[in-house]
Design a protein around this nucleic acid. Sequence first.
DNA 1: ACCTATGTTGATAC
DNA 2: GGTATCAACATAGG
Length: 267
Amino acid sequence: MPELPEVERARALIADRALGRRIETVDDRDEWVCRPHAPGEIAHALTGATLTQAHRRGKTMWVQTDADAVLGLHLGMAGRIVVDAAADGDRPGRGEGDGDQSGEAHPRGWDRFTLRFADGGRLALRDKRRLGRVRLDPDLSDLGPDAAEVGREAFRRAVGSGTAPVKARIMDQSVIAGVGNLLADETLWRARLHPMRPAGELTAGELDQLRRELRAATRSAIRRGGVHTGELIPARRRDGACPHCGTPLERATVGGRTTWWCPEEQR
DNA sequence: ACCTATGTTGATAC
DNA sequence: GGTATCAACATAGG
């Protein structure tokens, strides 16, 4: 699920529903998700604090409090944020409680980290695969500019170099932050660029086009509920044909990830 | 049963 | 330093 658009929706959920609430207890017992913190360390830093602001850069979120501690949250590959009974990405009318996840095999369900508020509600990181991450005072210095905000000049400079395929380049979080496997494919398809083109060989015009389509694809996905609401992504599993011209899509591994593109339109 | 795939990241090696 | 590969986690599906 989580690329920049999904993370932005999670951030907005926190901003809308969790700010101003006082933390009464913290469940930070999952030592893998909370590494390198020892159990109780995050709890100690946050108990009694009130959440004040929710931020995001790329796929990393951080929540400020009226204490010194900053709570860093990363959804990994399958994580979601749950506030009270609502999870980000829920469809209206279809609530998602703990439901079938609280069976005996999973005493805490898949909630790997939970803040319980003084008002009785809660915020949780729900993550089957435990590839999400919770930590205090996260280091953001290795992240490039946010993919939804980056300006034209900064984008040209950051993306337009190196011999790696352009797809790998835009997925490199230190180059620009927020692009994952699906958003990369969707964006390159919209920009009509072949994913294997060496990044350093793109012209300024192609880089500008790539940035425009990246911003457009990102904003559309945020508005519509996730990167699966694009055009290319649903086509992969539907009929495997380019939504523009009907040409069968190609599939290969690029930058270590499964990649789909239209061999007719993407050059 | 066994093998593959999966929205990410980080460590490691060349 | 830039690039490529593999491992970390857990589940789903052929």
